[in-house]
Design a protein around this nucleic acid. Structure first.
Length: 286
DNA sequence: GTAGGCCCTTACTT
DNA sequence: AAAGTAAGGGCCT
């Protein structure tokens, strides 16, 4: 038997979905574009995904068709009703134009561990460098997955990263983030950190836990909360969102992070996360 | 509580 | 080519 058996599945989708803007919206770093396909990993399997008129075409190493559909639906949060979001907030001119420009941009539900490490890497970094860092980790410490002609890598668990030293990571170009990552791996290994448990905690409780970790402050915690821990009120404020809040909503440049998040929650409640994603895309790419 | 210096490099611009 | 700067923050004082 060949080890790289792949199957192809059509996933029909009745929700707005734009694969490209979703994959290029700074949520994930390890999905590579090849022609019309995005290639990456979800849990234990490799996937190549292409947008079609009726939804997505998916080629995968996952042998179970039903599980493939479930995984894809889960990953793209197809349970979220974007049409409703667009209607509910269409009175806001800023958001309304972002909704139209980026229609189908969706939040992604990622693996919490990879998400945490990814955003610790993102601190004062840039996209190409973050990608390089994460791909190094995956390639050197993760399990390879064969998907047709391409090889992708499962993101290494804390156990798989247990022997990684600050020196190793420094050589891979992590800079001052190397120390954070080694410490976070140890937190996870010691059981002091339990990301799965945070899935069922409240936003506030989970955020308090995350910000105890070295290298994780307000912003990075919000990224993990929103992109992986299913806290849709998560409202990460990076430079781009800050500029948007100042330019479009009249906030002061030195407004406090937590006050801004509070304001966002009053404005948008549990839609704050989606609002943030559209604002980010609009401010950064338009 | 909070302003400023510092952290390690890389990618990209002048 | 060399120098400068921005890059999806966080920590410590």
């Amino acid at each position: 038997m060949a080890k790289n058996v792949i199957t192809t599945t059509t996933v029909d989708i009745d929700q707005p979905i734009d694969l490209e803007s979703t994959m290029e919206s700074g949520q994930v770093f390890r999905w590579e574009k090849n022609q019309d396909w995005y290639i990456g990993v979800i849990k234990r399997y490799g996937y190549a995904i292409k947008q079609t008129s009726s939804g997505l075409l998916v080629t995968t190493s996952n042998p179970d068709k039903g599980d493939t559909i479930k995984s894809i639906s889960n990953f793209f949060r197809l349970e979220d009703d974007l049409g409703k979001l667009y209607t509910n907030l269409q009175h806001d001119q800023v958001l309304n134009s972002a909704f139209q420009r980026w229609r189908g941009l969706r939040l992604i539900k990622q693996d919490p561990w990879e998400c945490l490490i990814s955003f610790v890497c993102s601190s004062v970094s840039n996209i190409p460098r973050i990608k390089k860092n994460l791909n190094s980790l995956a390639k050197y410490y993760g399990r390879p997955i064969y998907l047709g002609d391409s090889t992708v890598y499962e993101f290494p668990s804390a156990t798989q990263l247990s022997k990684v030293s600050v020196h190793d990571l420094s050589k891979l170009g992590f800079g001052f983030r190397a120390e954070y990552i080694v410490k976070i791996v140890n937190h996870e290994l010691s059981g002091m950190l339990n990301l799965q448990k945070l899935l069922i905690e409240s936003y506030a409780t989970a955020k308090a836990k995350l910000t105890e970790l070295p290298g994780v402050g307000n912003k990075i915690a919000d990224c993990v909360l929103l992109f992986a821990l299913e806290k849709l009120e998560g409202f990460p404020i990076d430079r781009w969102i800050m500029r948007a809040l100042v330019d479009w909503y009249g906030h002061s440049e030195n407004a406090k992070y937590s006050n801004l998040v509070c304001w966002a929650h009053k404005m948008w409640g549990t839609s704050a996360g989606y609002v943030q994603q559209y604002m980010y895309q609009q401010r950064r790419l338009s």
